[in-house]
Amino acid sequence: MTLLTVTGLHKSFGGVVAARDVSFTVARGEMLAIIGPNGAGKSTVFNMVGGQLGPDRGQVLIDGQDITHASPQARFRGGVGRTFQVAQTFLSMSAAENVQMALISRFRQSRGLWTPARERHRAGAVDLLAQVGMAEAADMPCSALAYGDVKRVELAIALAGQPKLLLMDEPTAGMAPQERAALMDLTASIAASQGIGVLFTEHDMDVVFGHAARVIVLLRGQIIAAGTPDEIRQDPQVRRAYLGDSHALEPSQGTGPA
């Protein structure tokens, strides 16, 4: 069942086209990866779905609702959660308070002036931390956690908004190699059990091919291929443009068969 529908997204920065007629869909519970070389337009597309950039043309629909021009706050309410390439958490708060803050916002209590924040939604926050395996660290200051654990807390914060769609910008960047698969396994199981669609960008091809149900490949702002990991792995155009292949050695100096 389709959750996210992106149609005809277009964005240019002063003459340079960063995204050209980009269309794709994400279903509930599906993990979709966007890959491509540096400068291919991954972040542009990602940020247009996330609301950090407004597209010149095109539409972003969630559950049929148009969120193309909605603010990040409105997207949160519309069911979009996200994690960042460099984990963004509230470092002055404990792990639990980070999640409590997200719950407070979800229940529209952020202007509450009386009952202390740390007494609100505590149980819900610890529950969410337990889902990402961080329940024991609930009262640790976020600034004292290892980076891999901060990434997990960030995932719990994103889940606190009860998202239908989770946007993850390079979810495993900066993590030790052995932590990466664990985080993505966790994400996949949560996504599957709660029917959350996940859209992520990633550099680590093991993560992409190991966890994505489908992959789309961007090159110069355009989708050049979309399909299952196996199809992408075999696609000659993708191999030449991105994955690297001995056959790609010669044509890069000429115009090549594009």
Partner: peptide, 29 residues
């Protein structure tokens, strides 16, 4: 490290005068 995120895990490399050495790897490696 970038902040607390570790990016390099114990690399070694060397360079001799006048040689060209390519550091290859995927994006984000």
């Amino acid at each position: 490290f970038y902040g607390r995120a570790q990016v390099l895990f114990g690399l070694s490399l060397h360079l001799y005068p006048g040689e060209v050495v390519a550091l290859v790897g995927r994006n984000g490696a």
